[in-house]
Design a binder for these strands. Structure first.
Lengths: 253, 253
DNA sequence: AAACGTTATTCCACAATGTGAAATAATGTA
DNA sequence: TACATTATTTCACATTGTGGAATAACGTTT
C-alpha cells in the first residue's frame, strides 16, 4: 500500500529531469513531469532548501548542486564491481599506457563509473557519469551482445542511431551483424566509429545469470594501435572481464 | 507552512547516512537518523524500488546505487565554476604536467569536483567527490584563509585534526598562524602535511562578496618540485584563481 | 507608462498519504 | 529448542502534502 512513498518518486523525477537538462525553469520542468505546478514548486523549494538544487537568481533557472558530487563517494565505496575492478584496471593501464574505462548498465544505458586515463599526452577520454552509446562504443557493444534476448530486442526497438563518423553503424541490421560477431569473438571493437582516429576494445562483465551488466574497455589513438599490441589487448581485456566476473561470483565462464 | 516537504528531507537524511557509511543495515541506519524503524524501512523500500539504493540480499545491507553516478553529469554541466575552470585547469596541467585539482565548499567541507591527473607515471591523486581537509591540504587552506571571520570561527570550533605525517598541523593556534600566512601570500602550501613526499600549492576562488568558496591546487611529488618551478607555479596558480573569480563575476581582485 | 502575456508564488479546504506504535515474522545465535 | 535481534506488516489516525484557483511578479510590446 503505502510502502512506496509517492513524494519521493516525484522528487527523483524532478531531479532526473534536471539531470537531463540542467538550467531549466519551473515552467519547463512542469512541462516535462506529470504533476501540477505548485507541486513542482514545492519540490524544488524543498530541494533548494536542502542544498541539492541551485537556483540561478537572474535566470530563475534550476540545476543539480555539487552536493550530488559527494554522493559519488558512497556509491563508489559500496560498489563491489568498482572496488573489485580497480586493480585490474590499473594493471591494464600500466601495461598498455592507454585509457581504461569501466561502464555499468544503469536504467538500460551504459554509464561510465570509472576511467583511468592514459599517461600519454595525446589522450581521448569520456568523463565518469557519461552515457555510452550501444552502437558506437566498444563498451556498449560488449554489453548488448551479451544481454538476454528479450531485453536486447526491447532496447533496440526504440534505439536511435546518431552518426559520429563515416564508419558509425547507423541501422539495426548492421548492428545485429556486429552483435553476432562480438558474441563469437568474446570482445567488441570500435574502429573509428565514435571518433575519427580512435580505436577501442571492450569486453563484457557477467552477472550470475551469465548476462553482461557491465564492461571494461580500452581507448587509444589508432596511430598507436599496432597489430601485435591490439591482439594482446583483445586477449587480456577479455580475460580480465572474465576474471572480474568470476570474482563477482560467476563460476566457470 | 507546507513549503518544505518533510519526507524529502528524511529521504536525503537516509541517503546521506548511506553515503557516509555504505553497506549498513536498516537497524544501523535507524540508529543514526532520528525517525522510527517503519519510516526508515519505507524510505529504503521506496529508494530501492526507484533504483537509487541497492540491497545486498545476503548481508541485508544497503548502498547508494550507481544511479547517483549519472547525476554527476547534470551537476557538472550546471556548474558554472566547473565549466569555466576547465580550460584553465587544462592549461595548468599541460604546462606543469602535474595533477590539478578543483574543490568547492559543500556543506562546510571542500569537495573535489574536478581533477586532471598528472601525465607522469608517478602520480598521487584523490578522487572526484572526496572531501579535502582544512588543515592538511593546500586546497583546504586556500579556502579557509579567505572565509568570513565568523564562518571560519564556527568551522574551527568543532574541527578535529587528524595527523597524516609528522609535518601535519595538529592544533588551532598553529593553523591560525598558517592561515595568516596564506592570507598574506595569497596562496597556500602543503609541504608533506598530508602525504610524505608530496607538495601542493593551492589558490582561492572568490565569490561576489570576495570570500573564497572554492580553490584550485596542484599536487606533485616533492622530488620534482624545483624551487624555480615552484615559484612559477605559485604565481600562475594565484593568477588563475583570480582570473576564474573574475570570470565568475568578481571584479577588481 | 499602460496593457498584455507569461511565469512564479501563495492560499487554503480537503482527503489522501504518510505515520509509527504495536504485533508478527524472519533471521541468526547460544 | 529457546532466545535475541532485526526485518516486515498491520492499521487506526491526523498530519502532511495536494492542486485548483487566485494573486503577484516579471518581461515584453505598443
Amino acid at each position: 500500500m503505502s510502502l512506496n512513498i509517492k513524494v519521493v518518486a516525484k522528487t527523483f523525477e524532478v531531479l532526473e529531469t534536471l539531470n537531463r537538462e540542467p538550467k531549466i525553469s519551473l515552467k519547463e520542468i512542469t512541462d516535462r513531469v506529470a504533476f501540477p505546478k505548485p507541486t513542482v514548486f514545492r519540490l524544488l523549494h524543498t530541494l533548494q532548501t536542502l542544498g541539492y538544487v541551485d537556483q540561478d537568481p537572474d535566470a530563475q533557472t534550476f540545476t543539480l548542486s555539487s552536493k550530488f558530487i559527494s554522493f559519488i563517494n558512497g556509491a563508489n565505496r559500496g560498489s563491489e564491481l568498482l572496488v573489485l575492478a580497480q586493480p585490474y584496471m590499473e594493471k591494464l593501464r600500466n601495461e598498455f599506457k592507454e585509457t581504461i574505462n569501466l561502464a555499468k548498465m544503469v536504467d538500460n544505458t551504459p554509464v561510465y563509473i570509472n576511467i583511468l586515463e592514459s599517461s600519454h599526452s595525446f589522450r581521448i577520454s569520456d568523463s565518469i557519469g557519461d552515457h555510452a552509446s550501444f552502437h558506437s562504443t566498444a563498451i556498449g557493444k560488449a554489453i548488448i551482445a551479451f544481454l538476454p534476448a528479450n531485453k536486447l530486442k526491447e532496447l533496440l526497438k526504440k534505439y536511435s542511431f546518431s552518426r559520429f563518423t563515416k564508419k558509425t553503424i547507423t541501422n539495426i541490421s548492421e548492428l545485429e551483424k556486429e552483435i553476432a560477431k562480438v558474441k563469437k569473438q568474446g570482445f567488441a571493437v570500435d574502429d573509428e566509429e565514435g571518433h575519427d582516429g580512435v580505436i577501442c576494445i571492450g569486453a563484457p562483465i557477467f552477472d550470475k545469470d551469465r548476462y553482461a551488466f557491465a564492461a571494461i574497455s580500452i581507448s587509444m589513438p589508432k596511430v598507436r594501435a599496432k597489430k601485435i599490441i591490439l591482439e594482446k589487448i583483445k586477449k587480456e581485456l577479455t580475460a580480465t572481464g572474465k576474471k572480474i566476473s568470476e570474482e563477482l561470483g560467476v563460476k566457470d565462464i
